[in-house]
């Protein structure tokens, strides 16, 4: 079983330092003497500030077990079972000061060598189920007289609707490609882009510009051009934007405040960057398909890590990290 506390990893993924006024900060210091004790353990049902804000970034961190589980999930190892609680002994194992505050019985048990240990858990797990789940495929739909073709299998796939027949990324990019409301021209360009992606040789990946985790090997990309397109866009999509808020710093000075972006917003930003970079490229041929070809070449250079779009993304992220200090989270 892996250790519950992963000491080698960074303890927090995103550490926002909430800015509070001096008095409140002192009071916090007095009330919560150590970081370990300020954390919420798995036993507590709900974190204390959970109802203050709906923004996921402002939520307080979970207990050590949740954190260890998340960390191991990210690095791909098997983490602790969240269903089980964290034992107090394990929590205080490396905290000498907290050990002094323990009851006498527990202090004694810490000093004495353990006689033996169980390799299994004795706590009941809720995930076992109560024997109520049904098993096996759903029964086939009854044959109804008077129907020429069989009834559709449910659930109806998401792209079966006339207005949502294309992949969401393809649809969004097509709409962003459109100029002067000419959708069919944009669709033709989209088709040319996908054709270019599927006929060009597989990209060579630059290890210093990592794509999304879980991306397929580059040789698989040309045969699945929509995946190729989505991968390029999602890999350079920025996580946040900077909103400059007037007067937040006092004296009429605007403060840059990082704001997280939603999925479509992130993609939109990335596509606009890519289109801007493609416009600056030189048109080598002549005729109708020139722009589509330049966009496709830009997409390939994004996947290969050569595109200037990566610099823009990194710059935004760097500024975002610096502007993190400007965030004020209400407690």
């Amino acid at each position: 079983m892996p250790p519950r506390l992963n000491l080698l990893s960074v303890p927090r993924t995103i550490a926002y330092r909430p800015k509070t006024d001096a008095l409140a900060w002192q009071a916090n210091c007095i009330a919560q003497p150590s970081l370990t004790l300020r954390r919420n353990f798995a036993e507590s049902k709900e974190p204390p500030a959970a109802d203050k804000s709906k923004n996921p970034d402002t939520q307080p961190l979970g207990g050590v077990t949740e954190e260890a589980a998340k960390t191991s999930d990210i690095i791909g190892t098997e983490g602790p079972d969240i269903e089980q609680g964290t034992s107090v002994e394990e929590v205080v194992k490396r905290d000498k000061e907290a050990q002094k505050m323990l009851p006498k019985v527990m202090q004694d048990s810490l000093k004495s060598t353990p006689k033996g240990f169980r390799s299994f858990s004795t706590t009941a797990s809720r995930s076992q189920g109560m024997g109520l789940e049904e098993s096996g495929p759903p029964p086939p739909p009854p044959i109804m007289p008077g129907i020429k073709f069989s009834l559709p299998t449910l659930p109806i796939p998401s792209d079966a609707h006339l207005k949502y027949r294309y992949d969401p990324v393809v649809k969004q990019v097509t709409n962003l490609l459109m100029r002067h409301g000419k959708l069919s021209v944009a669709q033709r360009n989209m088709s040319l882009i996908l054709t270019h992606l599927r006929t060009s040789p597989p990209p060579s990946i630059n290890p210093s510009r990592p794509l999304l985790p879980g991306a397929p090997p580059p040789s698989h990309l040309p045969l699945n051009p929509i995946l190729y397109l989505s991968l390029a866009i999602d890999s350079v999509a920025p996580l946040l934007r900077l909103r400059s808020q007037k007067g937040a710093a006092g004296g009429g000075v605007a403060l840059q405040i990082p704001v997280p972006l939603g999925l479509r917003q992130r993609r939109r930003t990335a596509v606009e960057w890519i289109l801007a970079a493609a416009t600056k490229r030189r048109n080598r041929g002549s005729g109708k398909g020139g722009f589509a070809q330049r966009v496709a070449e830009e997409l390939i250079s994004v996947v290969e890590g050569k595109s200037s779009v990566w610099e823009r993304r990194n710059a935004i992220h760097k500024l975002g990290v610096a502007a993190r200090a400007n965030l004020i989270l209400k407690r």
Binding site: T199, P201, P202, P222, L223, R284, G285, G287
Partner: peptide, 24 residues
Amino acid sequence: GKRPALGERKMLRKRIVLSNTNAL
């Protein structure tokens, strides 16, 4: 930048590609 050579644009436009090495 350097302009495409004489006839190069037309050649690109009229190019016939008969093979896709990615296709199975």
